[in-house]
Amino acid sequence: MAHRIGQFLFTALVLFGLWLLFTGTLDPQETAVGALLAAGIALFTHRRFTRGGLQNLAPGRLLCLLAYLPFFTWQMIKANLDVAYRALHPRMPLNPGIVRVKTRMTSDIGKMAVANSITLTPGTLTLEVDDDTLYIHWIDVRSTDPEEARRLIPGVFEPCLKRIFP
């Protein structure tokens, strides 16, 4: 029961935060309606929305998420310059292929975070997830060996994401 309450509170808090961002006012009437709506929606959706509860908001994990953002942004900018170079180059230097790598993430949300990070960063795109195996389309295959590829692709994100989504 305590777990369900935690799930409910977490969902309601996230929804209420989104409401505040989207309305952009602290007017008491609007805030009250937002709180009511957040509670109402969370009542029906909290079990689908999250597995954990309030521990999702533990300060250590939030700090880690904050530290992850600039690193992720930098990786994304690098990815875009790379794709832009390939799109502008007259002969299009492509060397694509699909490689298989294993991920160390165990939770579903962690796997999703790794897969999404891979999709948005240098030349890689997650095609299929099967248990702990990711099939990745790589625009410039530098290694077909699973261990080497593992070090090159998800290895960059995992140390940090592992702490955010244990």
Binding site: N95, P96, G97, V99, R100, V141
Partner: peptide, 10 residues
């Protein structure tokens, strides 16, 4: 896959 692709583990 494009014929220039070099590997397909899938």
């Amino acid at each position: 896959l494009w014929e220039g692709s070099i590997v397909d583990h899938c």
